[in-house]
Design a protein around this nucleic acid. Sequence first.
DNA 1: AGCTTACAATAAAACGTTTCACCAGAATTT
DNA 2: AAATTCTGGTGAAACGTTTTATTGTAAGCT
Lengths: 356, 356
Amino acid sequence: MSKSRTPSIKMVADRAGVSVATVSNVLNGKPTVSPDFARRVNDAVRELGYVVDLGASRLRSRKTQLVGVVVPDLTNPMFASFVSTLEHLARLDDYDLVVVSARNNAEEEADRLRKIRAWRPAGLIVIPCDGAFAERLPNGFFAPVVLADRIPDAAGFDLIAVDNGPAAGAIAAHLDEQGYRDCMVVGSSLSISNVRERWEGVQAAVRRMHVEMLEIGIDDANGAQRLEERLRRRPLPGALFSLDHGTTLLTYRAMAEIGLSVPGDLAFASFDDMEWMQLVAPGITAVRQPIEEMAEQAWALLLRRMTGSAGKPVTRRLRCAVEIRGSTPRSPLEEAGNMKLGGEKWKLQDEPYSPE
Amino acid sequence: MSKSRTPSIKMVADRAGVSVATVSNVLNGKPTVSPDFARRVNDAVRELGYVVDLGASRLRSRKTQLVGVVVPDLTNPMFASFVSTLEHLARLDDYDLVVVSARNNAEEEADRLRKIRAWRPAGLIVIPCDGAFAERLPNGFFAPVVLADRIPDAAGFDLIAVDNGPAAGAIAAHLDEQGYRDCMVVGSSLSISNVRERWEGVQAAVRRMHVEMLEIGIDDANGAQRLEERLRRRPLPGALFSLDHGTTLLTYRAMAEIGLSVPGDLAFASFDDMEWMQLVAPGITAVRQPIEEMAEQAWALLLRRMTGSAGKPVTRRLRCAVEIRGSTPRSPLEEAGNMKLGGEKWKLQDEPYSPE
DNA sequence: AGCTTACAATAAAACGTTTCACCAGAATTT
DNA sequence: AAATTCTGGTGAAACGTTTTATTGTAAGCT
């Protein structure tokens, strides 16, 4: 039996009785091609089930339809959704994606960047681990790079992110207005730009409320320990504001474990709105990031660069939405204040929160 | 200014003062290489920041470190987690992943399969949209294929899945034992093999409980409508068992919207355990799939094939875990039965519905 | 009829690798 | 000392494309 390999352009040419160049011309829709020959080529392609070898194609043409995507963690639903949207958009423009996860590790990120370079992608979309991204980019990297979600220390990249500061500030202001007097803010690490921006936004927005920050790291047992200890200590803060998805999950679970009730024992709000946050009772007040739109913008920016547009790097910020739910009701402390002015006492006991 | 392009092996050779063949030998760890020359080559590589062009490399060597991954939907956290684990394992073996989503659409899946073929991957890992996968695989596809999670109609592939039937059966038996007399089973579509297996497992496991199946499709407004109508009709079933992640989300949300309480109005259980299911109160009884282990097995199977192992296709089934939580308590009906032996009457009135 | 233009198709070079056949010299055997 | 085997290294071919330059032919112009 014949050593039949996956068909090459040469086999197509032979079967169609034309030259390889003609086959290539037909396949790439070059104008100078007679209908008759085109038909013969197309027939041969169909009969053989020929599919172009993109590796060889890129090698010669120096054009590739491949872009690399690097995210800190694929299991994070935010990033998964980001990649998913990206994948869809890329396909519409006939690009493919090589996706890698840096596992929240700067070294791995650097390693993956180097590796991905070996595919000679036409561009890169990266959600960097931390601010020192520029140092990790291989020096001789020519393809355009778009950064998303997190801001690097060094300038020089197209950038798409959300308005972390104002959005976090809105939550803080909300808690403030609801009458909470002190709020603990929890986040993974201030070395991540968006967490830092959120914290700064909180500080800028509060008026009467006192805030304190607690960093618990990423997958850091030590940090989780510190958080738990704080939650067991008294007095509790009136409110808790968690600044990123991982931290929210950890915190919410810890509160449940310790037996703290939301909002009975403390109010709770989160940056990053997950679907379960409207399924639990009471729902959790959260900032919802326009993650699909972020992916869209990232793709648009990259596409612009890949198709040759020059010019200064641009930075775009997207507006977040704030979802107020039952986990941040009017503070009982404040209610107590109002009651003196004739509030109805039973309300306090019957409905510890206002579910909306 | 010189037209400096990304460095090639030739530039490395020139700088090191050796032949291209020698550079290649050094880089690929060929044994016949003097330490002196190796050092010179490595120096040149470092100075130039040379990274091999994997496209060209594959073209000549006919070996590639690329595998394609096709999933029905990247936003589904199950699949996201699957891909994430896969990505990690692949990296350990120095493979890269091209990831595409078929968006729950057989046509798109076929399209993506054709497209991914153009990269000449060393193998494919696919979670197929439906049973007719074999027909969609391009005919001249030579790379090994491992299917996961869902079973195709046609045999001939390595296969890794979970024990859908027994696991779903365990839930059904649990509901039965808890005293529920009728249970509505909801799933996206019986054309998806694992949903079908789960439904069959339910039917095989029930003893006294009556079960009925409701298919609501995937992203099908019509199906959602039918579900909602059913939930508004009386009498309600004693229990609801949802057979896949998407359906669970939809159902749980619908119940909340309609104002049904779990387990007050009906018991609820789910195939697929999401993290929020232990965060809501009461927690939701669910089947937990070993999704990471599934990815591990898929990778192991594929790796075996890619490294040349022949032999008949194998099928492996993994054991699911069943998490019993508060959403499936002892049936009030059964409690009522017990009451005749001295139960407390008021309990019956607390439950508003009377099945049958 | 001659001369240029335009057109359709092709041969051959090039892309960056790996591999294969080969070679010079050193080391070993006869 | 001559003949053989190793050893470390190289030139050139090959992989499957695209592109450039080139060809042959038909059409358009005096």
